[in-house]
Amino acid sequence: MNDERRGTGNKGLNAAVYVVLALVAVGTMLPFVWMVLASFKPLQEVEQANPVPSRWVPGNYREVFSQVAFARYYVNSVFVAAWVTFLTVLTSALAAFAFSRLTWRGRDATFQLYLATLMIPGVVTMIPNYTVMVQLRLLDSYQGLIVPAAFSAFGTFLLRQFMLTVPPALDEAATMDGATPWGVFWDVVMPLARPGLIALTIFTFVGNYGSFFWPLVLIKSENLRTLPIGMMYFDSLYGRQTNLIMAASVMSVVPPALLFVLLQKHLVRGIQMGAVKG
């Protein structure tokens, strides 16, 4: 596209685009900004209409750490999400390779089975999964949080789409040169599917980091609680400490935001390859 032509011909339009984007961005950010402001309010004032605190209480942030083991919840959340992400990406990539690169009997049927399970409501598997956890003695443990989440049909689906876009000529050439499937996987397909891996990394991390229900039913010990569970403490029958909920929420945004900012360029480049194949 000829940038010059566009630049001269559409100045007005560009300005309009900026205005619309800015408006939407403000709309998106306002609640977030409000959340940040509320996190600095004294408790009485959280209930009042002024968006800016009349008295700034940075102590809310300290209070979050002193009322509950917030640091520990923080570490737990990141730890669990990191393991889940690592395992999901690894196992999904391996399976995606089997579905996209290897030929075997029953491959397509198996893949369709994967797709079908995407349609099943999560609550369906909740109860049986809980029973499985009881059997495996994984209640109230990190493993119980990590293991069931680490084998994703969605991830396999997504990475398969990416791997299909890698030209088969490349791995055929590698095989000619004597590479094993293992070698092709690591040295040819995986590097080229990197954008997909990054996309899956972000989706998995963000999704698991915020997960609420599974840890709620599974975790018992205080030292294994994750952030979404830990934050419930500030909202009890004996008084909702909204200012502390807000402070805790602001802090909890940091890890996924950081990850997103670091990886987002690759993410966009990444999806485009998979999406086309649909």
Partner: peptide, 17 residues
């Protein structure tokens, strides 16, 4: 252990040992 006060949690956890 205040995090597990829900009746459903107490029951399933106790059954689960």
């Amino acid at each position: 252990d205040p995090a597990n006060q829900g009746m459903e949690k107490v029951i399933v956890q106790s059954i689960g040992g």
